[in-house]
Design a protein around this nucleic acid. Sequence first.
DNA 1: TTTTATCATTTGTATGTACAAACATAAAAC
DNA 2: GTTTTATGTTTGTACATACAAATGATAAAA
Lengths: 155, 155
Amino acid sequence: MATNTKDILTNCLYFTANSLSRVITRMAEESFRPTGLSPSHVFLLMLAIENPGVGPKEMSDDLQLAPSTVTRFVDTLVSKGLLERKAAGKTVGLYPTPEGMELQPVITEAWQAFHHKYCDVLGETEGDALAVTLDTAARKLESAGYKLTCKCGRD
Amino acid sequence: MATNTKDILTNCLYFTANSLSRVITRMAEESFRPTGLSPSHVFLLMLAIENPGVGPKEMSDDLQLAPSTVTRFVDTLVSKGLLERKAAGKTVGLYPTPEGMELQPVITEAWQAFHHKYCDVLGETEGDALAVTLDTAARKLESAGYKLTCKCGRD
DNA sequence: TTTTATCATTTGTATGTACAAACATAAAAC
DNA sequence: GTTTTATGTTTGTACATACAAATGATAAAA
């Protein structure tokens, strides 16, 4: 069907997934600006608030980010005084500081604002359904061997 | 419904879109490895092959990348001897070199391999439908004011 | 014809993210 | 009880990508 590259592009999951990722990232950054943090940093902080003492490993599983990425994010949050590391032998426990805790209401509000913002455009049902669809697809692809830091057996 | 952050995460379009983007990027990089180029570089080269003399502006519209990003990609392709810039007054024309042209079959093959790879996991119908869904959603959000290099009026 | 405005492109700089290697500790094997 | 192995964390480095500012060049206005 598709005869030229432009048509192929819009039917290519790499291209469309990344286009969507870029536009939704712009929206999320705008919505989360009141927190002073990027969306991913916010997620990390929320997880630590809800689960004090959680380790980077668990974080990287939950957030589906590479462990080194989690380390960098934690560095940033620590330097902003929102998070604390407590070494415990091999592992590290992450704890929100009081300043980190104080951000919680701002974060919650930003999160809702973000949700409204994309639901205004996509429709609430469709927006939520899309998130579920993407989550399902991402998980399927991951279980098929495209996990993080995976040497991906073949070739 | 969602009571904790983990649940919220998997229902958050920022999170799910980026998770999918990361996993599909890993797959695409693997598939395109035989070309020696990253997937986005491949797209750019293909567009130049199909449309010799095309300018960076048009590229950035087609690829939905910032103009500066296109400049960097063109730099790379030029330095690899696959693409040539020809200045034409205010604009620049991009032309594939013979070496660039020679890559075409390898690229086509890699593209098909990539498509097969994710369709094997998601199903062909579902994989293709997903791409269309993502493209539609991304375009809706962009027309709603979340375009590249846009100051995004509000707030 | 000079000035000004507009638009395309590039450069400087910053951020998110990853991989591979280094480091550190705990568990297992001998 | 020392050596090996496995696992969690951080560091070095690199790439994709973006924004904002600088540059350059044509077109429009004076």
